[in-house]
Simulated scan of single mutants.
Amino acid sequence: MEGVAINEITEAADVGFGSFYNHFESKEAIYATLVDNVFEEFANTLDRLAGGLSDPAVVIAVSVRHTVLRARHDPVWGRFLIREGFSARAMSRGLGQRLLRDIGNGIAAKRFVVADPFIGFLAVGGTVLSAIAAELNFVAPGAPAAGALEELGFSGEHFPERTAAMLLQTLGLKRAEAEKIVARPLPVVEETVEAN
């Protein structure tokens, strides 16, 4: 947001400068709307992915894996998520609310053993954001520091699955079960087609 002027936004959108103020009171207002829309859209995608899943552990595993993979395929989106992932807007809407819901569902189903749901939320969310940063900096093909992992004796192989398995263990599952869950194929998102 800091690097763009309102006239650049209006030029890119091919609208008049005055038209901008018919919809937004400031650059900050359009940025807030962008944050809401990006995270709500992705949260809806995760809900569609998990729609037929009844096990809260599988829901978390699918969501974590899909999030890390999305960042791998769309690094700009990944950096945006890192930047805004723990903002008040992101935590109180869309992704944040759904993660709290999914952890709560796991606790209610006695699938997760979490004494403090908010700390569980922070642990999962923080780990996912750290994993995205690692994906973009060390793991993804062509990452700026791709050789650093190998130099340290680490591997980026199966990174989304390893991240999800560790988080399931953090939420109380045994390692063998967590690894079995994350080895399942990811569900495919059905694209919704709007009728005109």
Score class of each variant (00 low, 15 high):
G85I: 04
R70W: 05
L69Y: 00
M91H: 12
I60F: 06
R72P: 01
V59T: 13
S92M: 09
R72A: 14
R65Q: 11
R79T: 00
G96C: 01
W77L: 05
F86A: 09
G85S: 05
A90W: 02
R93A: 14
I82A: 09
P56A: 14
R93Q: 14
H66L: 12
H73W: 12
W77Q: 06
S92Q: 13
A71C: 07
F80L: 10
A90H: 05
T67L: 10
L81N: 08
G78H: 05
R101P: 06
R65T: 01
G78L: 07
R83F: 13
V62I: 05
G96N: 03
H73D: 15
A90M: 06
I60E: 01
G96D: 01
R70A: 11
I60W: 02
P56Y: 11
R98T: 01
L95N: 07
V76P: 03
F86H: 13
R101T: 12
T67M: 10
W77P: 05
A57E: 08
L95M: 15
L99F: 11
G85D: 01
V62F: 04
S63Q: 13
P75G: 01
D74N: 15
L100V: 00
D74W: 10
V68M: 01
R79V: 07
D55A: 00
Q97V: 11
V58T: 10
S63E: 09
T67R: 13
R98E: 00
H66Y: 11
F86M: 12
G94L: 08
L99E: 06
V68N: 04
H66F: 14
G78E: 07
R101C: 09
V76N: 13
Q97P: 00
D74P: 06
R72K: 13
A90K: 04
S92I: 00
R98V: 00
W77S: 08
G78V: 06
A88L: 14
R65H: 03
F86E: 08
G96F: 00
A88Y: 10
R79Q: 11
E84W: 06
G94R: 03
A71G: 01
V68C: 04
R72C: 07
A90T: 05
M91W: 10
R79E: 08
V62D: 02
L69T: 03
L81T: 10
R72L: 14
W77E: 03
D102F: 08
